[in-house]
């Protein structure tokens, strides 16, 4: 187990290095640097001045040297300074990440139980009307990306047109205090898109378990259907969805970016757009390393969790 873990960790570090290097070289492309120079000084700089400024700021060193310097900084906890906010990146990123953490927490709280319930209810009686209805609902939610459902929900629940002004169409106030009124729409919008996929995986896994021999034995023994589902089927059926939920995190990141911009909630997703839009090199790099690390850690957790949950899989070491 330890060797498996260490191997995975090694691959993870290598992946993180490769990915950040790609991001690093992309943000440091010639035209990007030129844009940065003009933004930092004035828009009508001559090419000569641009070259001079870049030289002064140390941008003409070889890419590898600069990358190594940046990695060294990150390892020691110094992520550079943001040109957009004129503050050290460290001061900005963690605060924004905490806000997104709150959003993610509530999304998970809403999404996971409802998705599992939907999947289990659909999968326990495969092929019935109940299954077909619930599966179609699940397909429907996967077909509704955040920017579509967000718009539709805002029109229904927060506009003058329908008149149901139940919720607020902006989550700016939720950054200080989360209420039902200001946080429902963003959470609902995100949860719905992710829900369908988990529900379908749960359904497939549940339907497979329900055809297993031991379930038939239990039925022949006279155990009630309810007890079979809850005691016998559920535990085995939830192994596969666990992995899927963990692998949902990278997808949720795109959702976070859309939802935070749609509802004006200034978290990590909003920060990423600001950084990319303003060509804020250090900030964008930190955002990407945070995103990549989150993705890789969830992958690792899903691998390890899968091994723990499923005793039939033993890691060869």
């Amino acid at each position: 187990m330890l060797i498996f873990f260490l191997k995975r960790l090694g691959v993870m570090v290598l992946t993180a290095l490769c990915l950040t290097f790609i991001v690093f070289s992309l943000v440091n492309l010639e035209p990007n640097l030129e844009k940065l120079a003009k933004e930092q000084n004035n828009m009508r700089m001559s090419d000569q001045q641009v070259t001079l400024w870049l030289e002064e700021e140390g941008f003409n060193r070889p890419l590898i040297t600069r990358y190594a310097a940046w990695v060294g900084g990150v390892v020691t906890g110094d992520m550079g300074d943001s040109t957009r906010f004129r503050k050290p990146v460290n001061d900005i990123v963690w605060e924004r990440l905490a806000l997104t953490g709150k959003l993610m927490f509530w999304v998970m709280v809403v999404m996971v139980p409802s998705a599992l319930l939907l999947g289990v209810l659909a999968g326990m009686r495969e092929g019935t009307l109940q299954d077909r209805t619930l599966s179609t609902i699940a397909i429907g939610t996967t077909a509704t990306p955040e920017y579509v459902s967000g718009v539709i929900f805002t029109v229904i629940f927060a506009s003058n047109l329908v008149g149901l002004q139940w919720f607020s169409g902006s989550a700016t106030k939720a950054m200080e205090e989360i209420t039902f009124y200001n946080f429902t729409l963003p959470v609902m919008t995100m949860a719905i898109y992710g829900m369908g996929y988990i529900a379908r995986m749960t359904r497939a896994s549940m339907a497979e378990v329900m055809t297993a021999q031991y379930i038939r034995t239990a039925r022949l023994k006279g155990v009630s259907f309810r007890a079979i589902v809850i005691k016998h089927a559920l535990r085995n059926a939830l192994i596969a969805p666990f992995t899927v939920i963990m692998l949902q995190f990278p997808w949720l990141l795109t959702g976070v970016v859309i939802v935070e911009n749609l509802f004006n909630y200034k978290g990590f997703g909003w920060l990423l757009v600001e950084a990319a839009g303003n060509n804020d090199i250090d900030l964008l790099l930190s955002c990407s390393i945070v995103a990549v690390v989150v993705v890789l850690i969830t992958q690792l957790i899903s691998d390890i969790g899968y091994v723990y949950l499923n005793p039939r899989i033993r890691v060869k070491s």
């Binding site: 990423l272 955002c287 990407s288 995103a291």
Partner: peptide, 12 residues
């Protein structure tokens, strides 16, 4: 696949 899609698009 480990690359967040949205980040990739913002860069590319």
């Amino acid at each position: 696949l480990a690359f967040p899609v949205i980040l990739l698009f913002y860069l590319l």
